[in-house]
Design a protein around this nucleic acid. Sequence first.
RNA 1: GGGGCGGUGGUGGAAUGGUAGACACAGCGGACUUAAAAUCCGCUUCGGCGAAAGCCGAGUGGGGGUUCGAGUCCCCCCCGCCCUACCA
Length: 830
Amino acid sequence: MARSKYSPTEIERKWQERWASEDLYTARDDDPRPKYYNLAMLPYPSGDLHIGHWYNYTGTDIYGRFQRMRGFNVMQPIGFDAFGLPAENAAIKNNIQPRTWTLENIARMRQQLRSLGAGWDWSREAVTCLPEYYTWTQWLFLQFYKHGLAYRTNAPANWCPTCNTTLANEQVVNGTCERCHSVVERREIDQWLLRITKYADELLRYDGLDWPEKTRLMQTNWIGRSEGAEIRFIAEVPEAKGKGSERIEIPVFTTRPDTIYGVTFFVLAPEHPLVDRLTTPEQRGAVEAYLEQVRRETEIERLSTDESHPKTGVPLGTFVVNPVSGEKVPIWIADYVLMGYGTGAVMGVPAHDQRDFEFARKFGIPVRVVYQDEKSTLDGETMTEAVTHVGHVINSGPFDGMPDSPETIRAFIKRIEEIGAGKATVSYRLRDWLISRQRYWGAPIPIVYCEDHGAVPVPEDQLPVVLPDEVQFKPTGESPLRYVPEFLNTTCPVCGNPATRETDTMDTFICSSWYFLRYTDPDDALHPWTAETATKWMPVDMYIGGPEHATMHLLYARFFVKALRDMGLLAIDEPFTRLYHQGMVLGPDGQKMSKSRGNVVAPDDVIARYGADAVRCYLMFMGPFDQGGPWNNQGIEGVARFLNRAWSLLTETIEAQTGETAEKPQGSAAERLRHKAIARVTDDYAELRFNTALAGLMEFVNGLNRLREEDPAVIRDARFLAAVDELLVLLAPMAPHVTEELWHQRGHTESIHLRPWPEYDPALTVDNIVTLVVQVNGKVRDRLEVTPGLSDEQARELVLARPKVQSALEGRAPKKFIYVRDRNLASVVG
RNA sequence: GGGGCGGUGGUGGAAUGGUAGACACAGCGGACUUAAAAUCCGCUUCGGCGAAAGCCGAGUGGGGGUUCGAGUCCCCCCCGCCCUACCA
């Protein structure tokens, strides 16, 4: 018998073209079915789609296809996050325009994205580096500015000396640049920030979000909300020449105002603005030496992997007065106090804070206990570590005897407020979002500087501020745009006098903070999105991407949506209703893939050899989708074999249809296999358990082949044919090309991907003979074939009559008999 | 230091408190073939007994507990990975 052979390459090309020409995956805004916005994180166009992209997009696509078959109007767009540093680095290295480099990469990656056979809605594609996109990025910046959410300030910035640019806190990893790993320095620079801190509290709420616990926790920790008090200590400025002494108040932030009687010293961050004024002439030399040391050592220390850095510091020679106890304690500076958190000043309570304790012990500062345990064993002289929560208050005047509790803290705050020394307050770890980049390849910040009018926003009708193509890349530390006179020089929108443009560009995370909105209507030339379609499609129902974006992109996008809502531009609170993180595909050696290890698997090669369907299936079969796993070159062979077996089963069954049907006993077995497969596979798809879904489909195929072995004529039984048809439908999300091909060979003219998802009959998922497992005293001792659903009495009688059960009981009478009908299990205790 | 995830055959991994190892990979044996590839069939947790069907024992990082029954739940310990890190 001449049989067609499964040759994926041909089939896949054919169907990809056909789907494109029929707009099969173009989501219509006026479709009456319920919408489903199925989103994958958009790629950066680095040049080639790597296996991680394939993994992410295969899972996303399978899920989208499943939802489409379940009756949803699925919108599954794709685009490119196309601004960013690599384009500029490539420009410098290869003497090619960043724009050219990027667009060429995009062209190549579009082909690769197509070769995956995913149901992308290409009509909605967005490319963030094109003026029709970034004009709206700039417009959004102006809205943030208008609403007081964008501001410019001179503040210390993370500076990467190699990339010659500032970095956001999120881009600093272990004190080094996340991209080039140079040690990050601190510099004072004028820069733009977005006021994300205004939304800190709301960002801590995840109402209605189906997000991984881990990701929510990471965001919560990143935001780092601490309740406490701001307390003003009073310092005396040393007498300057010709002036008398002066008293100034220095606020500290503390979460433990209840330990204020335990303060034995006071510490400022080295960068604190009052350090200079509070240094006595005697200490000036030592202080300046220390400041120099901190500047030199901080970054090196941050690099060191030492668990605890030894505490360093130096006294200023001046003192502060504790506003509650009236006591005078010395002021120090130390680099364990950070200018960027709280107020940059802390009250030192060594007995009850471990960092303060280490500092005090090192410099011989007294340790005063203000919380005592029941047995009064705490002694400031002898204790070896700080004790944070214990017993009751002592040495604290009117507060003595109060327990370690939130009420006690409130009592202290009340007292502090009464004497006018401070107030209850909340501090966050989260800082405002620094968005200025001294780089060329990004969206220009639409601001003009005028001598008379300062920073003036570019009028909206003059957008976009177009990025010029011809620039020189010089390692100056400034944006190359500064050296393009046609760009730099302009006129003030207010007075018309000569003015200069802002030459910094925006952090690319801005571009990716709203792209999911642009997808809802990417052709709108008059708005960033159309209210009506955005309302229809948002929020995103399922968002799939890597967990590494937890504290950056995913937090920024939430902030954007909340801010835009408050500006009246959106009517939703959250962008992504359900979030899912795929795992990582490792090299065959179980290690992270990297060029230096030589364990990189190139998707294009594998597809050329096995076809996209096999690659898709294998990626999903490797392990749980959220865990990933090592790539195994033999593993994909197994999956390819499975697709071949399915192909043969299908083509042979189709060919065997002669018009005559055969009613065979195996037909009803085929029907049961079919209903069981539907039940199992549907659940697995819904929970993104693609590995077990595929295992279920393999069992389905193996089962049908076994029936065929028993009686080859079964393939003309209508129930067998129905089972084989169902196999195609169930496999379609995973292997879209081969199933489409066979579906048409089967005689259908409409795409299999528009089929409704099948239902199953629970009654038909039950076998008519089941194995009853018998445990005696907890050990499996016997198995017997029975019809399901025996009564307790029937089961008891059958089981106790079994010789193996008898011998296991060794003549004892059964004390207890448990029959679990649903589990087909009996347990005898004797 | 803090937080999270995980530890199951030679390998990747299955397993609503109910037959541990589904489904695959690799391996071994066999069929087909002049031969090989491909394909198909069988075996494959470990130890012991048996000619075999099979039987007995152990077994999910280690120790304890709850339960008729624990990979799964509880307590203690060990190991690995990821994130985070002087946040007052």
